[in-house]
Nucleic acid binder design. Sequence first.
DNA 1: GCTATAAATGAAAGCGCTTTCATAATAGGC
DNA 2: GCCTATTATGAAAGCGCTTTCATTTATAGC
Lengths: 329, 329
Amino acid sequence: MATIYQVSELAGVSLATVSRVINNTVPVREATRIKVEAAMKELGYRPNSVAQSLASNRSNSIGIVVSELGGPFYGELLSRIENEFRAAGKHVIIAAGHSNADLERDSIEFLRGRNCDALILHVEAVDDKYLTELAATGLPFVLINRMVETIEDRCITLDNDRGGYLATEYMLKLGHRDIAYISGPLWKHDAQERYNGHQSALTKFGLSENKALFYEGDFQETGGVNGFNHLRDHGYSFTALVCANDEMASGAITAAHEAGLRIPEEIAVIGFDNINFSHYTYPKLTTIDYPVAEIGQMAARWVLKRVYQRPIDDLKAVFMPKLIVRDST
Amino acid sequence: MATIYQVSELAGVSLATVSRVINNTVPVREATRIKVEAAMKELGYRPNSVAQSLASNRSNSIGIVVSELGGPFYGELLSRIENEFRAAGKHVIIAAGHSNADLERDSIEFLRGRNCDALILHVEAVDDKYLTELAATGLPFVLINRMVETIEDRCITLDNDRGGYLATEYMLKLGHRDIAYISGPLWKHDAQERYNGHQSALTKFGLSENKALFYEGDFQETGGVNGFNHLRDHGYSFTALVCANDEMASGAITAAHEAGLRIPEEIAVIGFDNINFSHYTYPKLTTIDYPVAEIGQMAARWVLKRVYQRPIDDLKAVFMPKLIVRDST
DNA sequence: GCTATAAATGAAAGCGCTTTCATAATAGGC
DNA sequence: GCCTATTATGAAAGCGCTTTCATTTATAGC
């Protein structure tokens, strides 16, 4: 690869001048600019962004940490973030945290070491203290789907509590009274909040929770299958099932089919997230919409505004979930 | 962030020595190593990988270009590749090419500029010539799901032709004779190959293709819906439908449901890829398995072997698709 | 104890770029 | 046409690290 030095030689100017035309920071005489551009073209020159990054302490790249690379949820999130930054001429570097504190820290450190200008984090395992300290280092970052009081201005969240409430409230309004709940792992903030919402709805309707109708799943499809079977075996009957995400709802539906139950006639099922396959299920899944794309976009804009001083004004921190009624209830 | 210089000062040794203990390239006396490690720990030192990369011309990171970040297919691919490299202490930098030649080139150049040690490419739009030239620059890269003769040793592919054949052959064996086909965009290599396979199967059974039963879709769910409706409207009836991927098959199934047709009794449907949601459909989708995870793993291993000299011997270049029979046929 | 050899360490250049500061070129004012 | 105010350009330091080469220190052999 050609270097800036070769370009400067060919164009008969100094390195500094070439650098100026690349970044157009300082005006350069038209004639000079043309010479330089010609030289760059002739050599097929492309700036080495590693060197740029080292010299300028700016990398034009944004680090992203998500739990998993796969899956409909993260896929959509990443996709949207990437689009937003691409349009702004920035690039993303993605790392997976696998919901594990060490790996999350690792990924964050890796991205810091790569000189990312900012980070977008969807981390679940590291504690609030770590994040607070990280903020204190001066590294700009946004936190998605998690509220940490000490760095509240960096958090972009969904009102999960409200979402959990909506799901159960809807079942209650439909007349169901025996409502089972399959939760996500309760150490995860969002799982806990959704579950709280579920409980609030029950309370609001003057019902008390029946612990026998609760199951703590893993946010995966198998969790839904296991949860459903566990709840059925347990003896208490229920006419409605609220799942803390769509994957588990899908698993539960499969298990229900296998048990020969009709949905929604015998059991109504609702999910959470509204991920893109939720209408592939049969019957199509009623769910709570998680506006992933919007949240991804907002996170990107936060960075564009705070770090790159782009004029953006409608930053929004808390998103509201919406009920999406389809055929499973 | 602390620099290597501060570490060397605190430990009372030279930069060079610190560098040696970091990389343990050259033996360092035990006592010295301990001093240095203590200093690193005290300062919370982490090497700046940008500087490392510039100085060593090695970045320990691998660039990946895929068409999209979202979607079950790429999600699984990325996920697997990332896992493989993480285990080897390498990191990945991901960019999206969006099936567009300019963006693909852009992404590749970006990754080159970031000093990636190697690239894994799933690109569809750039031409063979570009890739051949790219190989000539000495940049190590593997090509996934595409065969370019001039750089055959860098290609890891699925025998799409065979897959297309298997799908249609299976329908023929079931006794179907009026078989519709919804293809992917034919400018894409894999779509073309799958279609070729379909034709071969027909020929093998002594049938000639009925052009009225062909529709060129977009590999998306809507393509399946539109394709199905188009084929139905067209007047020719068919008892089996072969789709060039699962998304379109899923769309077609939805459209068939809406048209009040029973699957598989009235129309048998088969997909291609065996992506993870293919068993969420109703009825569960019969499909051709695309071993994405294995292919991702193989690509990663190719890099580990060729670029990082890891001892790996079972590199495999062509994968075979398999028929997965479920309930839609 | 003294030299010959091997092992550990340090000094310094350099990776490709940005950026400050100084200098050279140009324009403007009279 | 000369002096000053601008503007464009160049020289050189430095970003944080690796790596070569030279030097120092330890080890062995006699």
